[in-house]
C-alpha cells in the first residue's frame, strides 16, 4: 500500500513547527478543519490571532502547480476579486515545505455559504464567475492540469478497471456510459476556449459575509472551459434550472461574453465529475478517513447506482442534443 500521501508525519507538533518556521510565532494551539484531500489546521499565533495552515497531499501537485494556484489567487486579488491570499512566508514566497509536505498559510476568513440562490444572487454569482474568468484568461497556467476527457474520465476508468473496483457484471455498462460521456466531453470541448478556472465552484466554496461574496479553495483549479464553473452552482434540470441558468448568465454576460454553445458541455461535465469522484475515492481509500466517510463505497449497490446515473446522464445528453437541434 502506498502510504507516502498519508500525512503520517504531520503531527500537531509538526503543524506548529511549520507555522513557526514560516515566521509566525505560535501558541501551542491548533485545530483540524474539515478537508479530505489535504490537511488543514487553524493555528493560534502568539498575538491570539489565527492562521489557517494548509498542507497539500503529498504527490498530488508539484510545487510549480501549487505556485500557479497562488499566482491565480494573486492575479484575482489584484483585480479586486475577493479571494483569500496566501501569506508570504519568512524568506519570501508563499509555499513552504516540512518533512516533504508542501504547505501554505492563509488568513482566517469568516463567513457562511450562501443560501439556495435566488435570481438576484444568481446574477451576482454570474458576475463573480465572469470576473474570475476575465482574470483566468489573462495568463496561461502551463503546469496546471487541463480538464479533459482523457485525464478525468478515460484514465480514471482504466484505473478503476485495473484495480478491480467495479463489479464484473457492471463493468461493461459502466465503461460504455463513461466512454460515451468522454466522447461527448471531447466533442463539446473542441473549439471551446479554455483558460484558468476555479474548477470546483459550488456554493460550499463561496463565503458570504457582510454582503461580500468571497471565493475560496482553489485546490482544484484547472485549465478548462468556463462552463465548468457554472453548472456546479446551478440546479440540475427542468424549467427552474433553466431560469436559474439564465439569471446567472444575465450577470455573467455583463462582464464577459459567454459561449452559449459550450452549455452542451454542462451535462457531460457532470458525468466527468461523477467518474472522477469515484476514482478519487478509490485512490484515497487506503487513507483511513475515506472508509469512515464513504462506507458505502465499493459495494454492488454503490456501483449499480453509479452506473445507472452515468447512463441517465448519457440519456440526458442525447435528449438535450435533440432540444438544441430543434
Amino acid at each position: 500500500m502506498n502510504t507516502t500521501d498519508l500525512f503520517l508525519s504531520l503531527t500537531p507538533h509538526k503543524v506548529l513547527e511549520a507555522v513557526e518556521d514560516a515566521g509566525f510565532p505560535v501558541n501551542p494551539l491548533c485545530y483540524p478543519l474539515n478537508s479530505f484531500e489535504n490537511r488543514v489546521y487553524e493555528v493560534e499565533l502568539e498575538d491570539r490571532s489565527r492562521l489557517v495552515a494548509k498542507f497539500y497531499r503529498p504527490g498530488r501537485w508539484s510545487p510549480e502547480q501549487i505556485l500557479e494556484e497562488h499566482l491565480f489567487l494573486a492575479d484575482l486579488a489584484e483585480a479586486e476579486v475577493p479571494v483569500c491570499l496566501p501569506r508570504t512566508l519568512r524568506g519570501g514566497g508563499t509555499l513552504g515545505t516540512i518533512d516533504g509536505i508542501s504547505y501554505c498559510l492563509f488568513p482566517r476568513m469568516g463567513g457562511r455559504a450562501p443560501d439556495e440562490p435566488d435570481s438576484d444572487l444568481l446574477e451576482r454569482l454570474g458576475m463573480l464567475a465572469a470576473r474570475i474568468h476575465n482574470v483566468g484568461a489573462a495568463r496561461p497556467a502551463v503546469h496546471r492540469v487541463r480538464l479533459d476527457a482523457d485525464a478525468f474520465v478515460r484514465q480514471n476508468v482504466a484505473f478503476l478497471r485495473d484495480k478491480g473496483s467495479i463489479p464484473a457484471r457492471l463493468l461493461a455498462r459502466y465503461e460504455r456510459a463513461a466512454r460515451t460521456i468522454a466522447d461527448f466531453v471531447d466533442e463539446g470541448i473542441q473549439g471551446t476556449a479554455v483558460h484558468r478556472i476555479h474548477g470546483d465552484l459550488h456554493l460550499g466554496n463561496l463565503l458570504l459575509r457582510d454582503g461580500v461574496l468571497s471565493v475560496v479553495d482553489f485546490d482544484d483549479m484547472v485549465v478548462g472551459p468556463a462552463v465548468q464553473d457554472l453548472w456546479l452552482l446551478l440546479p440540475g434540470e427542468g424549467v427552474e434550472a433553466r431560469i436559474a441558468l439564465e439569471s446567472f448568465l444575465e450577470g455573467y454576460e455583463v462582464l464577459r461574453a459567454f459561449d452559449r454553445k459550450s452549455l452542451r458541455l454542462a451535462t457531460p461535465l457532470r458525468g466527468l465529475r461523477r467518474v472522477h469522484y469515484a476514482a478519487w475515492i478509490a485512490r484515497r481509500f487506503h487513507d483511513p478517513i475515506f472508509p469512515r466517510t464513504f462506507p458505502h463505497f465499493g459495494t454492488e449497490a454503490y456501483w449499480e447506482e453509479e452506473t445507472r446515473d452515468l447512463e441517465l446522464i448519457v440519456q440526458m445528453i442525447t435528449q438535450e442534443r435533440g432540444g438544441f437541434e430543434a
Binding site: V239, R242, R260, G323, F324
Partner: peptide, 21 residues
C-alpha cells in the same frame, strides 16, 4: 405537466439559441 414543461423549455432555448447564433 413536467414533460410538457421540459419540452417547451427545450424549444424555447433552441429558438433563442438559434436566433442568438
Amino acid at each position: 405537466v413536467e414533460q410538457a414543461s421540459d419540452e417547451l423549455v427545450r424549444v424555447a432555448v433552441a429558438v433563442y439559441e438559434k436566433r442568438r447564433d
